[in-house]
Design a protein around this nucleic acid. Structure first.
Lengths: 110, 110
DNA sequence: AAATGAGGTTACCACAGAGAAACTTGGTTA
DNA sequence: TAACCAAGTTTCTCTGTGGTAACCTCATTT
């Protein structure tokens, strides 16, 4: 069960995409700027997967050139607190790790 | 930043391991039973990674044969609400998906 | 003396998934 | 008429990761 649920945010850059959409709709190329290391191919794949899962919606604007906007669904927005929680703990774990590195246990004076 | 934080729960079965430890310490073979599809190799690798990250601790009991217990650290326990949040949204997304499948848009009466 | 059990390790293989780069479409502007 | 834009798609390659299965240790039990 956990495994299926985790699958919602699996795949490269999926959490980043969701996080980038937290403040409102973004277009394809805006997302590429938000998440520099993502390739067009993978971003495209991830967006379609997330759309298929009901996390976000795609609306194409019939301008020229046509532009596309991606936006979190209500359900997708419910992932934000979870991501936020992960970020918070992640920070604390990194801090703890740094502290450990700074306290080499017993190098006192050999 | 998000990426590094997500790394804490990345790797096959990592979330499952953390979730299995939520109610208290577990031994190696208990975890294998909790998470049937995990292989000894991967479970071992994951446990050492999570230990290295400060998510859990290992204590070896000098019995015979020696037994080993794994337990969440305080920091590790802080991941539980995040996992729980993911599980909740995962459920709702699956439900929504099922509903979509059950409402084939316009098959009304052709 | 051989089998058992806990808790692993090692060697080897396979494949999904990510990256890079080039190509596409169709209207617009220079 | 040629370049340009957004938003992808396609091909091809390559590596990390996980799976399988066999092996290991060492004290205890049979």
């Amino acid at each position: 069960m956990l495994t299926e649920c985790m699958a919602v945010i699996s795949g490269a850059w999926a959490p980043n995409v969701i996080w980038s959409l937290r403040a409102g709709p973004r277009r394809f190329n805006e997302l590429r700027v938000d998440i520099p290391p993502v390739s067009a191919k993978v971003l495209s794949a991830r967006l379609r997967e997330l759309e298929g899962k009901g996390v976000l919606v795609r609306h194409v604007r019939r301008t020229s050139p046509p532009s596309t906007e991606y936006e979190l669904t209500r359900l997708g927005a419910e992932l934000l607190p979870a991501l936020d929680a992960i970020i918070q703990v992640g920070h604390r774990l990194k801090t703890a790790e740094a502290d450990r590195d700074a306290l080499p246990e017993d190098v006192s004076s050999a």
